[in-house]
Design a protein around this nucleic acid. Structure first.
Length: 582
DNA sequence: GCCGTTTTCGGCCCGACTGTTTTCAGTCG
């Protein structure tokens, strides 16, 4: 079992223990364990008990449980807990605004064990009858359920890709000679996906049966001669299709989508006297094959350069391809810097040096350390004195470590009234400041917009972090006028972040493309809280590609000198107005 | 459940916000 899956089971145990009313520190130990496993660069399945014990946060009990989970998928404690509570109750616990105490109370008083139970109870007005709950709680519950329903069946790209890649590895065990392609919305880099689509070329038919025997299968939905479908315990559906080699390109094109892109492409084929399906591009009159072995061949036969999967959303890509104006999309290798990350000074897991070395090994030539500011007490945010002392330590580390430049910055909180959480003199003393909203999300659009624009007026704010505050499938973006935000960013010469965490991807592809059109600079940042999370840049880059971004649109593709010189604090007022680097 | 020159017990990150209290419990980050 892969690390994210092991971590998921540990978190599930933590949820169930909390529900049971167990010692909160025992619960926390399981959550810490989950975090440590998720952050581990080595697969924990390959570690023995002594190696596990060497990890901070893992003791005798957790080491044994991790061994159990990694090898069997579960552990005794989890099974015992699931005897007490049905697994469906975990869904209730993950509702926004509903915690373990409320779920336990609902379970014991109304025997609520699922979202359906809870919805029925709320609609019947039974919630307000419980001591400590009222009409507002009842309404909040119904809202949370409605939101959840809207997101049902969708999965975050990070989770879906991890599962898809693990599945492909499983298939390779049975048929190593075959070629596997992950297609569908995952290939396009969409932020969520409904299911996993895998194509296998040059694979024996037996691979389909092997697919259905994957350990995490909950139910086999179908098994035929060329296709199998499974439902995984994670509630993701996965489909495997066998494709003949001469049709691989046609199948890639067809199953990558999007539906709208394919419709447009098929129309183009028809207008040229061809038909296009998942097997080939063929002459409509004679049925003779024109192309199908490669995607390039299909697009070429239609008079187009191959269009990158990230662009295939029917957002003007076919016209651009026709006109020869497709963008030269940004890649991970274009990113020289990563300028939003945390260390042990606030809520990160690793220190300055460790993060720097890991970033250097990942190919970055500079980073900026941006720990939290004081108002984020739970994250151990820095006050003015600590921020300045931390900056001094960062500069010492920079002097010591070769091969990478380490800039001293801060992720400063934008307070509810638009003031910043640190003195302007502190912000001025740093190399780079990214300002973010982490509290009072519930403001009106007017209040939130004024709040962020007020913060942007500070001349030492260089960028805005995760500008809309969304958590994909969990929390709607906060109400903010994104157009006004983009306009102000252009006016002040402030960059807007594409936060690469796959829970956020904020700005979204659509907003980032809008920002680019307005000439606003963008950043692609990991917001890493550990060395492992530096790899999150992968998702931010995908989002940027979906936003049609080229390297020049993203400030951290510049070398460190150009990056620094381009910042608002180092520009003349006239240059700042144009929003461009001098 | 983990950790430890405050080590085998007794701590473990905590402030803001909300809805429900009539002085606080639950949730979130």
């Amino acid at each position: 079992m892969e690390n994210p899956s092991v971590a998921r089971v540990l978190n599930e145990i933590a949820d169930l223990l909390e529900l049971k009313g167990e010692n909160i520190f025992r619960v926390r130990a399981y959550r810490t364990g989950a975090q440590v496993v998720a952050d581990s660069p080595a697969p924990v399945a390959g570690l023995d008990v002594p190696a596990l014990l060497a990890i901070d946060g893992i003791g005798k009990d957790l080491a044994a449980r991790i061994r159990d989970i990694a090898t069997t998928g579960t552990t005794g404690l989890r099974d015992e807990l699931l005897q007490i509570f049905p697994p469906s109750i975990l869904e209730v616990m993950r509702l926004q605004g509903i915690g373990p105490k409320t779920v336990a109370l609902l379970y014991h008083t109304l025997h609520v064990t699922s979202l359906d139970d809870l919805e029925a109870a709320a609609k019947a007005g039974a919630i307000r009858g419980i001591k400590g709950m009222g009409a507002k709680k009842e309404a909040l519950i119904l809202t949370a359920i409605a939101e959840r329903r809207r997101h049902a069946g969708r999965h975050l790209i990070g989770h879906a890709c991890e599962t898809a890649e693990t599945l492909v590895a499983w298939l390779r065990e049975a048929a190593p000679e075959a070629t596997y392609d992950i297609v569908g919305s995952l290939r396009r880099g969409a932020e969520t996906s409904g299911d996993i689509d895998i194509l296998a070329t040059n694979a024996p038919a037996e691979v389909l049966g092997h697919f259905t025997r994957y350990r995490q299968v909950e139910r086999v939905l179908g098994l035929g001669d060329t296709k199998a479908s499974i439902l995984l315990t994670s509630q993701m559906q996965a489909d495997l299709r066998l494709v003949p080699a001469e049709s691989r390109g046609a199948a890639l094109q067809y199953f990558t989508g999007s539906k709208a892109h394919n419709i447009a492409l098929r129309q183009r084929a028809l207008s040229r006297g061809y038909t296009l399906n998942e097997y080939a591009l063929a002459d409509a009159a004679t049925g003779a094959r024109i192309a199908g072995e490669t995607e390039d061949g299909i697009y070429a036969a239609l008079g187009l350069p191959c269009i990158d999967p990230a662009l295939r959303e029917a957002r003007g890509e076919i016209d651009a391809a026709e006109a020869g104006t497709l963008p030269r999309l940004i890649t991970l290798a274009d990113l020289q810097g990563d300028v939003h990350m945390h260390t042990t000074a606030s809520d990160g897991r690793h220190d300055i040096e460790t993060m720097a070395i890991a970033a250097r090994d990942a190919g970055r030539s500079y980073i900026c350390i941006t720990d939290h500011s004081q108002s984020l007490a739970m994250a151990n945010g820095l006050d003015d004195a600590r921020a300045l002392a931390h900056a001094a330590r960062i500069r010492e580390a920079n002097a010591k470590i070769d091969g990478i430049t380490i800039l001293a910055g801060i992720e400063v909180d934008i307070l509810a009234d638009g003031r910043l959480d640190l003195e302007e003199s502190t912000l001025a003393a740093l190399d780079f400041v990214i300002a973010s909203v982490h509290s009072a999300f519930d403001q009106s659009a007017e209040a939130m917009t004024v709040r962020v624009l007020t913060a942007m007026a500070c001349p030492f704010v260089d960028a805005i972090g995760h500008p809309t505050g969304r958590k994909i499938l969990r929390r709607e973006p906060h109400r903010i006028d994104v157009e006004a935000l983009i306009e102000a960013a252009g006016l002040y010469g402030i960059a807007l972040e594409i936060n690469s965490n796959y829970h956020r991807l904020d700005l979204s592809d659509v907003h980032a493309r809008r920002a680019r059109a307005q000439g606003v600079g963008l950043l692609i940042d990991s917001d890493a809280h550990s060395t492992t999370e530096l790899g999150l840049l992968r998702w931010g880059v995908l989002t940027a590609r979906r936003a049609w971004l080229e390297p020049a649109d993203v400030w951290n593709t510049r070398d460190v000198d150009a990056f620094r010189n381009g910042l608002r604090r180092h520009r003349s007022p006239a240059a700042a107005k144009t929003g461009r680097a001098r």
